[in-house]
Write a protein that binds this DNA or RNA. Structure first.
Lengths: 151, 151
DNA sequence: TTAAATCGTACTATATTTGTACTATATCAA
DNA sequence: TTGATATAGTACAAATATAGTACGATTTAA
């Protein structure tokens, strides 16, 4: 149904929680408590975000995760790619030719690239800060976004 | 993985095939032959496109389907919505409150609306004709799109 | 009336996603 | 050095969504 995975939604929640403790590293357990998400799930998401260089991790006792970039410098595209892998709306666009169901008769190969790029632009134009500003009911912020033609 | 369903891809192929016979109604079997897609699947897709008012259908002998709008007046968003239902990137955005997994502690409710709108704009800005023009290797057409800043 | 075509619904197999568990590795502190 | 604690990596079972198919009902031309 053209949906983002639930884990991507969790990622946004978790990143928002990390920002509050910003310069400090916090453990998975603490984040789980703050977000009311199950600990193994939080762990999984943070691992993925770490691989994508969105958060830093420190191992060992007193270790934990911390935000690496500010939310304003982090786009929805970054998060989606971190959790769900490279964006490709249909298998044809980025995968090998032989994975295409229509095989030789496929008249569409590569056509979706246009759509793919448009979606990439769309996701890349919204930062997590934009989302947060709308979230907290700060109408001033929303107005600003509106004035800039971003929403 | 944030993919369009395969049926949506089929829909584009099928619509392209319908255009060739444009004013005439053609039967599912013929379209299936042209597109090398299984007949039941073509039938399913065309039924959905009919409900969305993208194609017209005539029942009975000598009946069939025909394009209702030109491909240039048909956006990818139209097709996606026809096949996959209203666009909502996460359950929170358009569904009832109680379907939200995070329930009362959900700090994100409504936040994705911004992203949702951005994606809608992106999909709504690409017509099927745009896709076709790229498809057939008509470099002139591609150049035109490029000049217009559409790709 | 018959043949040909769409319409509607339901069902099954497959693929994907989600959530969890377990083991290995790294770091700090006593 | 050793133990406690935390992340890293892998693997897997359950739940969900998708894809494809089948079948009977309905409609229309000949």
């Amino acid at each position: 149904m053209f949906k983002l995975s639930r884990l991507t939604d969790y990622a946004v929640v978790i990143l928002s929680s990390l920002e509050k403790e910003c310069p400090n590293h916090v453990a998975v357990g603490f984040v789980a408590e703050q977000t009311h998400l199950p600990e193994p799930t939080v762990s999984k998401v943070l691992k993925l975000l770490g691989k994508a260089d969105i958060v830093t991790s420190v191992r060992g006792a007193t270790g934990g995760y911390a935000l690496k970039r500010q939310l304003g410098a982090l786009t929805v595209l970054d998060v989606v790619v971190a959790i769900e892998g490279p964006l490709s709306v249909v298998a044809c666009v980025e995968n090998a030719v032989d994975s295409c169901v229509l095989e030789n008769s496929c008249m569409m190969r590569g056509r979706w690239a246009l759509v793919n790029d448009a979606l990439k632009d769309a996701l890349g134009s919204v930062t997590l800060r934009d989302m947060m500003q709308l979230q907290c009911g700060r109408r001033g912020a929303a107005k600003k976004l509106l004035a800039e033609g971003r929403i």
